[in-house]
């Protein structure tokens, strides 16, 4: 769903902390027709210009709170990511991205479902590997975006 609109097209920028570029960020929306409890959100398959950025280097900023790791997000079992709301996906990468155009391959993983599934127990142990389409039922393809880097911001 909303294949070309899950990342806001003018949102790619480098993150700056205390004057130092520590990574980059993107504004994202939920790939479904409804919001979900935040705990169900397990991270992204994300490559930029062929480089893979796994969920371990990703943090997620939503609901007016500072960026949280997906380990912390896992514990947010009563907090909801509403359908209306944009969130910011931050990626740690010292030095950030180079100016200009970048090719981004992207898939969100949210283990929301229509009821019980055969994979439930397995996903309690560990969420599905990102990018496989598992846990991405409404947008099962990896989507490619071509985005320009915008001016950096102080995070």
């Amino acid at each position: 769903m909303f294949d070309n609109y899950l990342i806001r097209s003018d949102s790619l920028r480098n993150d700056v902390v205390d004057g130092e570029v520590v990574g980059f960020s993107l504004a994202v929306r939920i790939a479904n027709y409804r919001g979900v409890f935040l705990s169900l959100h397990t991270g992204y398959y994300l490559t930029v210009d062929g480089v893979d950025y796994p969920r371990e280097v990703q943090t997620f900023e939503v609901n007016g709170k500072p960026p949280r790791s997906f380990d912390e997000i896992k514990g947010c079992v009563w907090e909801h990511w509403d359908y209306d709301d944009e969130a910011i996906l931050h990626v740690a990468r010292p030095g950030g991205l180079a100016p200009g155009a970048h090719e981004i391959r992207f898939q969100q993983c949210v283990i929301a479902a229509y009821g019980y599934l055969p994979t439930d127990e397995e996903w309690v142990k560990a969420p599905p590997k990102t990018g496989t389409g598992a846990g991405s039922d409404k947008t099962p393809q990896v989507i490619t975006y071509h985005l320009e880097l915008n001016d950096s911001v102080e995070a």
């Binding site: 409804r34 979900v36 409890f37 705990s39 169900l40 896992k74 514990g75 079992v77 283990i111 929301a112 479902a113 229509y114 009821g115 019980y116 599934l117 439930d120 127990e121 996903w123 309690v124």
Partner: peptide, 12 residues
Amino acid sequence: VSFDVLQFRDHV
């Protein structure tokens, strides 16, 4: 309404 059986993440 929906229900997501993995909401609590530590059990189904």
